[in-house]
Design a protein around this nucleic acid. Sequence first.
DNA 1: CAGTGGAGGCTTTTT
DNA 2: GCCTCCACTG
Length: 730
Amino acid sequence: MTTHLLEGLNEAQREAVEAIQGPLLIIAGPGSGKTRVITHRIAYLVRTVGVSPHRILAVTFTNKAAKEMKDRLQRLVGTQANDLTVGTFHAFCASVLRRHGQHVGLESGFSIFDDEDQMELIKAAMEEAEVDHKQFPRRSIQGVISRAKSVLLDAQGLAMQQRSYFEEVSARVYARYEELLAQNNAVDFDDLLLKTVFLFRNTPEVLRRYQERYVHLLVDEFQDTNVVQYTLAKLLADNYRNICVVGDPDQSIYSWRSADIRNILNFQKDYTDAKTVTLDVNYRSTGTILDAAKGVIAANRHRLAKDIRTSREEGSPLIVHEAFTEAEEAQYVIQQIDRLVRDDGIKRSDCAVMYRVNAQSRALEEACLRHGMPYRLIGGVRFYQRREVKDVIAYLRLISNPEDQVSLTRIINKPPRGIGQRSVDQLVHWARSQNIPLHSALELVCEDRTEDKPASHPLAPRAAQAVFGFVTLMRNLREESGRLDAVDLIDALLDRTGYQAYLRSSPDDWEERWENVLELRSAAGEFRDLGHSEGLTTLLEQVALVADVDSYDEATDAITLITLHQAKGLEFPVVFITGMEEGLLPHIRSMDSPEELEEERRLCYVGITRCMDRLFLTRAFRRGIRGSSGPTIPSRFLQEVPPHLIKSAKPIGQKRTVWSTSKAPTLEQEEKTVPVFKTGDKVSHATFGEGLVVSYAGRGQDSEVTVAFSGGAGVKRLMVSYAPLEKVEG
DNA sequence: CAGTGGAGGCTTTTT
DNA sequence: GCCTCCACTG
């Protein structure tokens, strides 16, 4: 531990590390050594100033960021790092609520509902509030509720806003939804934050404990915090006022999740004595890449101007490539990576392929498989959301929280044990009419069964018998959970339920599913040393709050496929941004709102600035969107990159180069240039060679021609207006 | 009661 | 194209 903590830092960085007294706002441009500053600041507090690590709280946006920060701190302060509190807002709040939840009506062992559980409950709430799900999509209602929660609005508050009929209906569902959550002894993601704020507001003595403990508070990715999170931060910092927030307004890309850029402005208003440090030297990207990024972001009107300088050389030009279809775009990407690996000694793990929407990963994956390119797909279907994994988790959740109806109804007949949908419905309605929780209703069914009275419940004898079997199973498991650790408990329930046989009986991919169950089991092994009940709650919390299993090892030499959003905070020597098309980037859903369009631009900016050395921007002439496919228009962001930075990969026999046209061609021009073919014409294509026209359909720029190529390219359907196609005379 | 198949709806980003 | 819901069948 001989490193001098201020060594190797530039002036601004050093200032940010040393300004430990009072509020501090760090505006950190991309690649400006932000993480370095945060970790060194914490290390400086611990090692130089002598602050106990126990009294420092650092909040990050993702679990991954938290993990990385912990790792780095480990290197800087050694084992003392274990005493630091580093985590996401959600994880921090969960631990507060575990301890003090009773003040806001939560019993120990409360469940944390994920998206899917939440939707189940909203569905039930809508039914009970008699809201038609065809007229009011669940998803939209969920969105309204979530947005309300993230600005500290309860159902009543939402109803009082009276902004639209839709919100009014949503407020009704919201109210019922809250009752159901309470009945389930459960919270959703937003509640973790919201309830913690309520807890702190209503129970000053609890707040005071945290306020007094944490002398220093750091918030990373501040531009992506929402109102609740900022409120929480302010509450926590109220005592010592040593609050340091780090962010970059140009990288704010989560406003759709209620993140509020205005937090940065509000910070300066709320803490008038705040010091501001700007980190504006970029150590990551070449001059060319940075200029490209600056060109794009400069087009945003609502923006605090900020100039970033590079510390690096100019570097090689950007490569813009226009492929024909998404498949060829993917193929181009893979081929380029192959070439870079072969000729330039670049590692596959240095390469990232980014895209706007997850659906784009498909073509890329297929290309990887075809070319034998090892890849790592970030995101996709989450491990903990797989059906079989969630089933086992539901058992565990029900063991630790009997009130959890969502879990109960999920597994009451899994594996099938003779309690079908009809019986479940009857039970739910009966419980509701008797005004008792569902699990109590089940208990009553069992008691009734043993006595000889006429049954007071609505179940058929056979179903009642099945319920008895289930209740007994759960009773036993719950009782044993006190003696068993999480792994043994999982074993017990798998064994008792015959879960493996159940998996085996149905789909053909049961082996993979069983593997997943075993992986959950081994994840549970991590918590073996904790007490039995604590181990279980910790496991369940981990499962709820950790998005992806950190099972990928950095060591494997594979390329990374990742969405632009998820790429935030990462860097790669080689970056491909694919799908540079209007409608994708910017996304079609953002195109009619100037604010959202600016966020798309920031997203593009984030993507570009992830790149250290070589940047490729690609698009496809034709892209399939849910089944059908059609021609595309180049992204406006391509035109915002200064043209002199770009080297065209291959203009594919095109007359115009899309990135240099300042405007898309008018329909008129387009009509004129579109050639007309008829069946039987001989044609020549720049890539596919010669062929014969099989059919011709449509008119103007929408004309589509089907050509059978002789050179092995086979039969292709092409857009006449885009395809480099010429009629061959004779 | 459970499993199958067809019809219809939907589709951004994620703690 | 994928998923969900529903009705029908075994």
